[in-house]
Nucleic acid binder design. Structure first.
Length: 497
RNA sequence: CGGGGUGUGGCGCAGUCCGGUAGCGCGCCUGGUUUGGGACCAGGAGGUCGCGGGUUCGAAUCCCGCCGCCCCGACCA
């Protein structure tokens, strides 16, 4: 009885568990390049499904896709003061364009050709505000050109010291939206619209509950007027910033001279927004739902939604169960479901169950001779439970099960998130809470950055957001949870990824 | 960038103290028997022991130097 590869239980070591789930589900692997990851087909499929859903939502709100270069002149980055400061420490630079042979053997066979040094180094984009607004300056002349609503799907590079698969890697994939508007109100509306899209995507597709709100000055995007974010609580009670939407004000417009002529003939700077979500979402998905048996994928984003495992002894039985399995697969696929039929002869059914479970498949259908005799299949849910299900109407039963699983995952995640949130705690309770595993702590905040810094220093907790009205406590806090001064706003603290 | 750990077939490890020319489990390949929750038997393939020096008749093992990776802390989607 050989025991297959194990997944470290969450309770033992969350971080190892996270890595094991990714390995077992074949989502990603470490690459030969430090800090970079290879996204494997099963993981990339999740990203593709995410892309499709988000892209549809962007399109439905009037955005169009474009593509801007990977390389940005170094001088561009310097044009917006806060922006440089934010990214200077983690940019990769291209300084040369040629290698040459040395005539030596092995690793020393080639070297940088010093004569190929660029006059101005190119930055590998850590984000694209600068190059995009440089182009906006060319394209925008009149108020009739506004709003300009663009999005791009791209890779970006940020030279991180410490990396974790999906959550923080040197190179990652994302979408970045960039828009230009006639006035602040329109830009604000846009930033808010996108935040709503991110929230809806997190909840309806990822089954991941989030709280929305605005970032404090110290946590906002480098160069933004305001940063909005969706924040989710992971199973280890650490918060994950899962998406951000920035009202950039006129900071970049002024830096890059993005001006337009008003109807009255005046000249004004545009108001910009930028917003993004990345492959980090996959990390969030993993840490929201998965268990000690591997990945749990919400049905809407599961690369494989249904795995059919036929069971047989004789060749005769094999033909029969495989035939029925194939028919069921075809029927399910007709409704647009993603289905795999597992007819491998080298594994016993039990081994296949474990494998599909590790891959996060929400529904498994087991079809054996005894099932066929009674005209049924066994429907097993990734979230637990097996139900004999008549083959007549199996498509309806499967779709219903998938819908239920999607809803149940969201409900369970929301319940967990709420259970690990506290409101109205005293300073002492807050410190205790953050020491003992943490979670979301709602409380009054005086607005003083030094108070914020002190809290971070002592508890490692940061203000994730100043929550939007619907997430705020029924009664507004009167005093700062930390210093006791009058509260100017409610805040949500957590230790964060 | 600081602290800790680790490098030996694809993966996980033993062997290192006490030098003698590499082994175990899983995985992989072939054949057979199996198949309702991780099958079994038999045969087989696969390793410059992280890299570079040195000591020695002989180095995975001892000495010197270097490198990679992972984990934990400050910055970040």
């Amino acid at each position: 009885m050989a025991q297959a590869k194990q997944i470290t239980p969450r309770a033992k070591d969350f971080s190892e568990w996270y890595g094991d789930v990714i390995a077992q589900a074949q989502l990603a692997d470490y690459s030969p390049v430090r800090g970079c990851m290879v996204i494997r087909p099963h993981g990339y499929r999740i990203w593709e499904l995410m892309q499709r859903a988000l892209d549809d939502m962007f399109r439905a709100t009037g955005h169009r896709n474009a593509y801007f270069p990977l390389f940005i002149p170094m001088s561009f980055l310097a044009k917006e003061a806060e922006h440089v400061e934010g990214f200077a420490k983690e940019v990769a630079l291209v300084t040369h364009t040629r290698l040459r042979a040395t005539g030596k053997e092995g690793a020393g066979a080639i070297e940088v050709d010093p004569s190929s040094e660029l006059e101005e180094p190119l930055v590998v984009r850590p984000t694209s505000e600068t190059i995009i607004y440089a182009m906006f300056a060319k394209w925008i002349q009149s108020y009739r050109d506004l709003p300009l609503l663009l999005n791009q799907w791209a890779n970006v590079v940020r030279w991180e010291l410490r990396t974790r698969l999906f959550l923080r890697t040197t190179e990652f994939l994302w979408q970045e939206g960039h828009t230009a508007h006639v006035d602040e109100a329109d830009a604000e509306r846009e930033a808010r619209t996108i935040l709503g899209i991110y929230r809806r995507f997190a909840e309806e597709w990822m089954a991941m509950p989030v709280i929305t709100g605005v970032k404090t000055e110290s946590e906002k995007f480098a160069g933004a007027l305001r940063t909005y974010a969706i924040e989710a609580l992971m199973q280890d009670n650490k918060a994950l910033q899962a998406g951000t939407s920035h009202n950039l004000g006129q900071n970049f417009a002024k830096a890059f001279g993005v001006q337009y002529q008003t109807a009255a003939g005046g000249l004004e700077y545009v108001w910009n927004t930028s917003w993004g979500v990345s492959t980090r979402l996959i990390g969030g998905l993993i840490m929201t739902h998965s268990d000690d048996n591997g990945l749990v994928a919400p049905p809407k984003l599961a690369p494989v939604q249904v795995a059919i495992v036929p069971i047989w002894k004789s060749d005769d039985e094999r033909r029969q169960v495989s035939g029925v399995g194939d028919q069921v697969k075809t029927d399910l696929e007709k409704t647009g479901l993603r289905v795999e039929l597992d007819v491998r002869d080298s594994l016993k059914p039990g081994a296949k169950y474990f494998e599909w479970e590790a891959l996060g498949v929400p529904v498994r259908l087991e079809i054996g001779p005894r099932d066929l005799a009674s005209g049924q299949a066994v429907l097993a849910r990734r979230t637990g439970g097996k139900t004999p299900t008549p083959l007549q109407g199996i498509v309806g039963a499967v779709t219903a099960a998938l819908d239920e699983i999607q809803a149940a995952l969201f409900a369970a995640a929301r319940a967990r998130s709420e259970k690990n949130s506290i409101r109205g705690a005293t300073k002492a309770q807050f410190i205790e809470f953050m020491k003992g595993g943490g979670g979301f702590a709602y409380g009054g905040f005086c607005g003083n950055p030094s108070c914020e810094a002190e809290i971070k220093q002592q508890t490692n907790a940061t203000i994730r957001v100043l929550p939007d009205p619907e997430f705020r406590s029924k009664e507004a806090p009167r005093t700062c949870m930390w210093c006791g001064a009058p509260s100017v706003t409610e805040a949500v603290w957590a230790q964060a990824y």
